[in-house]
Every structure is written in C-alpha cells, then in structure tokens.
C-alpha cells in the first residue's frame, strides 16, 4: 500500500484517537505536562495505528444523541430488571436462547451491537459466528429488543435501516 493512500486512510482515525487521548491526558495530568503529553500522544497514535489499525467511522450526530439516550435509559431499566429478578424470592427467570442473523455490516457497527446487547435489559450476547448471533434472554424472547437495538446502532452510524431475518 502506498504511503499516500495509507495516510489518507489513517488520518481521520489518527485525529480521533489523538483527540480522545488529549482528553485522557487532561484527565490524568490535570492540565499539566503538555510538553511531555503532546509528543507522547503523537507517539501513542503512531504505535496504535501500527499495532491495532482502525478505520474511522463517521457517526451521525442525531443518531448519536438518540443512541446515548436509548443506552442510558435502557441501562437503568436493565439494571432494575435484573436486580428485581435477583432479589425476588421466587427468582423469576424466563430463559430463552435465540439465533439471529445480523444485518449490520462487519466492523464497528457490529462491535457496538454485540457490546451493547449484554448491558441492556434481559439480553446477553453469547456467540457470533459469521453473521449468526446467539442471544441469551432472561426476560422472555430477546428478538424484539435486539431488533430495536440494531435500528439504533444503524442510526448511530448513519446506515440505512437494516431489516432482520430470523
């Protein structure tokens, strides 16, 4: 791969990582030591692109807002739900395992989907083999929840809404 092509591909990702790392340095060093932090961030960005190359993925601002709101409200609900089940004397668990074909493209969108499933009410990601996602549910059929989550993730990355096959 030519250097120029690499640079144009890696540059957006490099900027995003550098910006996030600047926030991290601000948090760790409390605004001091930029003479060391600045070059350190540059070195870390270069090493990261060498060790774990990532591609920048544009986010949709409105989709991001909706995703964050959805994630926070569902996280709270999920926490309350599982706490209620754990503390309930009869331990009500409606266990159901489903295999679902993921329509989101491979890459960050799928990572966010699988990473989020286990934090939302009643669902746990168990396996991902090619396009087939296995989900474990303790609140009945996880299908509807996954369908809604996949739509939110598609919005987050500004992807066309992907329908789901069973």
């Amino acid at each position: 791969m030519s250097l120029r092509r690499r640079a144009t591909q890696d540059l957006p990702a490099a900027f995003i990582i550098a910006a996030l790392l600047a926030l991290l340095w601000l948090g760790l060093a409390e605004g001091e030591g930029w003479w060391f932090g600045g070059p350190a961030i540059l070195a870390v960005v270069l090493m990261t692109l060498h060790l774990s190359p990532v591609r920048a993925q544009p986010l949709h601002p409105l989709g991001l807002l909706r995703f964050v709101a959805y994630f926070i409200s569902q996280s709270l609900y999920g926490g309350l739900d599982v706490a209620g089940r754990a503390l309930h004397p009869r331990l009500p668990l409606l266990i159901e395992k489903r295999q679902i074909a993921v329509q989101l493209p491979d890459g960050p969108a799928r990572t966010v989907l699988v990473g989020t499933i286990s934090l939302l009410p009643g669902t746990l990601a168990v396996d991902l083999e090619d396009d087939l996602l296995t989900v474990h549910g303790i609140a009945g059929d996880p299908m509807a929840n996954i369908r809604r989550l996949e739509k939110r993730v598609a919005d987050l990355f500004g992807l066309p809404d992907a329908g789901m096959r069973i």
């Binding site: 790392l21 991290l24 060093a29 030591g33 060391f36 350190a40 070195a43 870390v44 960005v45």
Partner: peptide, 12 residues
C-alpha cells in the same frame, strides 16, 4: 492507546 498513554503518564 489508553494503556500506552497511561503507562507513559505514570512514567512521566
């Protein structure tokens, strides 16, 4: 990136 920078921070 997080561990690399945190490591460099601890060094500094």
């Amino acid at each position: 990136p997080v561990l690399l920078l945190t490591g460099l921070y601890l060094f500094w």
